[in-house]
Structure formats: C-alpha cells, structure tokens
C-alpha cells in the first residue's frame, strides 16, 4: 500500500503532465482550481489519469467533491 506522500508525489507528476503545474506546488492543502489554476477540462483529465494510475474508480458525482489535492489523495487512499 502506497503512503500518502507516495500518492501525492505521483499525483503531482500527473498534474504537472496535464496542466504544467510545478510538482512541488501540488501540496495537500492546495485547491486544484483556485490555487493551481487547473481548468475544468484539465480536471477531467486528472481524474481519468488517477483512475489509470491508481486503479480506482472515480464516478462523476464523486469527482465534484475532490476540490483539493488532499481530497484526491484521501479518496485514492480509501478506494485503492
């Protein structure tokens, strides 16, 4: 089982790949939209990227609740 930091770090690489955000800015307390300037279409790519990378399923109604990096990491920890 991956640690929280391992998940955050892999998620950071994904966010960097999709939206060009520097990996060290992708910290647990950061909001995707407000802090990291990730737009709604890029967010869709990040969600699908998470499914692929971490082997989880994130239904559309759940993805709306993943507002911060920490929300996403917690969801992945709980469901992988």
């Amino acid at each position: 089982m991956a640690t929280t930091e391992e998940i955050r770090s892999q998620l950071a690489e994904l966010v960097n790949d999709v939206a060009g955000v520097p990996v060290d800015e992708v910290q647990l307390d950061k909001s995707f939209v407000e802090d990291l300037d990730v737009d709604s279409l890029a967010m869709v790519e990040i969600i699908v990227g998470c499914e692929e990378k971490f082997g989880v399923t994130i239904p559309d109604e759940e993805s709306k609740n993943l507002k911060t990096v920490g929300d996403a990491v917690a969801y992945i920890e709980a469901h992988s």
């Binding site: 279409l41 869709v44 790519e45 699908v48 499914e51 692929e52």
Partner: peptide, 8 residues
C-alpha cells in the same frame, strides 16, 4: 473505453 477520451 470512453473514459479515456480527452475532454479537449
């Protein structure tokens, strides 16, 4: 599958 289609 459709989930992998780019939103762009």
């Amino acid at each position: 599958g459709y989930r992998r289609v780019s939103p762009f």
